[in-house]
């Protein structure tokens, strides 16, 4: 039996949808990480006026409803919007921007938490060893790497499974902006549950593989962390 029979359409199209999903999310989360990790680290390392308000704002934005992001971005990118002349609406770039916006507070907030959990005495030991400010920042970020990786894993998981925002700004255009999640919505609406379930399984299994890799990076040199219950004790 040909695999394309199972999907009832070109296997190439399924590959295309899957590739687009991971390309959009991968680029969006990588770009967000480049910006949000340094910002979250600075937030954790330095005290300044209004820090508490900013942290509260970031924590709030971590739960930002994707459909609201999509709506705002739609209004900005639509012809009459401020960014209309860029002609980005219904393009993969618009989808990336939406996911980028949603990933920023997640990575920034969780990176901030990871940095804040570094013990003060480790910071002092590093200063005592004669570290420059830049060396201190690098050492601290390295110490917080498990938490920072967790922020990327969380942002990736949220972005790849998101549907509302990319549906609004991507438009779910066949062969162009149709992603796994938007395709699942479409096939469900059309009553093609077999196809929707198949795409769901592709989404789950590929996300699992990518998260497996990210988690490997997170734990490769230290095993699982955190408190452990003593063995043999009831």
């Amino acid at each position: 039996m040909d695999l394309s029979d199972i999907f009832g359409q070109s296997l190439n199209e399924v590959f295309g949808i899957t590739a687009l999903s991971f390309r959009v999310t991968g680029i969006a989360v990588a770009a967000a990480a480049l910006l949000a990790i340094p910002l979250g680290s600075l937030l954790g390392l330095f005290d300044f006026r209004g820090k508490r308000v900013l942290v509260t704002l970031i924590n709030t934005l971590m739960g930002l409803p994707p459909v609201v992001v999509g709506l705002m971005l739609y209004l900005l990118l639509s012809r009459s919007g401020a960014l209309g002349p860029l002609d980005l609406l219904y393009t993969p770039t618009a989808m990336m921007i939406a996911q980028f916006i949603m990933a920023i507070p997640i990575i920034m907030g969780l990176s901030y938490s990871a940095i804040s959990a570094i013990p003060q005495r480790l910071v002092e030991r590093t200063i005592s060893l004669g570290a420059t400010r830049n060396q201190l920042v690098i050492v601290i970020i390295r110490e917080a790497r498990v938490g920072i990786m967790a922020s990327i894993v969380a942002a990736f998981g949220g972005a790849i499974s998101e549907v509302g925002a990319i549906m609004l700004v991507g438009g779910n255009i066949r062969y162009f902006t149709r992603a796994l999640t938007t395709a699942i919505v479409l096939y469900t609406n059309m009553g093609e549950f077999g196809m929707a379930i198949a795409l769901g399984l592709i989404l789950l299994s590929t996300s699992f593989m990518i998260n497996l890799f990210l988690t490997y990076l997170q734990m490769k040199d230290q095993g699982t962390r955190g408190p452990k219950l003593p063995k043999g004790v009831d």
Partner: peptide
């Protein structure tokens, strides 16, 4: 000050260890 600290070394009462 960094130069001065590099000429000294302090050992804290509570050991502070890097995750390495």
């Amino acid at each position: 000050r960094i130069g001065y600290r590099r000429r000294m070394a302090m050992v804290f009462q509570q050991p502070a260890l890097y995750d390495m």
